Amino acid sequence: MPRPAAPWRALLSSNIQTLACPTFSLATVSNASGAAVPHVRTIVYRGFYGELPVTQYNPNPGNPGYSSDLIAFTTDKRMEKFNHLGGADGVPLSSSPSAGNNNVEACFWIPPSTGNPIIGKQWRIRGKCYVLPRDLDSNDERAENTKAWLIETIRKDGGGDGEQFDFSREYKAHFGNLSPPLRGSFRNPHPGAPKELGDQGLKSSRPIGDNELDEEVARANFRVCVIEPTRVEYLNLEGPSRTLWVPVGGEVEKIEQLEVVGKVTDGWREVDLWP
């Protein structure tokens, strides 16, 4: 049975729509020689997975009539970020040692439309981040596990789950939603490699047109990532007010001892906090 829409989702979506450029900060942690090393990046928000926004570049729409609570963005599999998110495509199996390496926090800042520029709204969203396999129809165990999880997570308008969702079409649509120069960046030389080492025979900085969306080199490196929220905090400095949502029965609810406070709506506990 599909999950109902999270109670915080509509408000977050309406706030993001006010941004001229919908970006957020993404915090990850990696381990280097036994020490935890933080990393923060600016990421372009690509919508909730399953309901891809329309852009002028994309001749291939995704899957209309679906929605989810998964926050989507895209990345190059060759980047350091991939290793910081667990170093493997897909949802880890319960026995996987990388299952705990993909904890992230996303932060959206929503400035006011007028008035004091520091009196805005902030969303902090903690959760698990997964790099979706390129081919979710393969027989690979992680791909099968990821597809089964997504089918249960995605909602179909009018009732139903993601059983009929076309994952290959969604992958191509996400690639098509990028501008031609950005698509071309996925066939650049290895991100972060010194230029003195050469271009590795790759055609750097050449755009990929709307009629070239099957370009193999770029698409082999291109990945869609999703964040599954496990803790959502909204701070409205105009109020001021501060609200927290956590899944009922989840680990965060227990750790923060929230079982007997707030109210419960559609599987989420909503708690008013002091600003």
Rank of each mutant, 00 (worst) to 15 (best):
E141V: 12
G120Q: 06
D140I: 12
P117E: 01
N139S: 14
W123R: 04
L136Q: 01
D137P: 01
R126I: 08
S113E: 14
K128P: 01
S138Y: 05
G127L: 00
D140P: 08
Q122P: 00
R124T: 05
P117Y: 03
Q122A: 13
G115W: 04
T114N: 11
T114Q: 02
K128D: 15
E144G: 15
D140V: 10
D140M: 09
L132E: 00
I125Q: 00
I125F: 03
N116T: 08
R142S: 11
D140W: 04
S138M: 13
G127E: 06
C129Q: 07
C129N: 15
R134C: 11
G120W: 00
P117L: 12
R134E: 13
Y130L: 12
R142G: 01
D137C: 09
R124H: 09
G115T: 03
D135M: 09
R126Q: 14
R142C: 10
P133W: 04
I119E: 04
P133A: 13
S113Q: 14
K121Y: 04
R142L: 14
S138V: 12
R124V: 09
L132H: 01
G127P: 06
K128M: 13
S113V: 10
S138G: 10
P117A: 08
S113L: 06
E141C: 01
N139V: 10
G120H: 07
E141S: 15
W123D: 05
S138K: 08
D137L: 10
D140T: 12
G115M: 09
S113N: 06
S113A: 14
P117T: 06
L136F: 02
P117R: 06
A143S: 15
D135H: 15
V131M: 07
L136W: 03
G120A: 08
R126Y: 07
D135C: 05
N139G: 08
I125G: 04
N116G: 06
R142H: 14
S138W: 09
W123N: 00
G120V: 15
A143K: 00
T114P: 05
Y130I: 15
R126V: 02
K121C: 00
K121H: 04
K121N: 09
P112F: 01
K121F: 01
R142I: 08
G115R: 04
P133L: 11
E144P: 00
N139I: 11
N116L: 11
L136S: 03
I118V: 12
A143H: 01
I118Y: 15
P117K: 03
S113M: 10
P112A: 11
K121E: 12
D140R: 10
L136G: 00
P117S: 07
G127S: 08
R124G: 07
D135P: 01
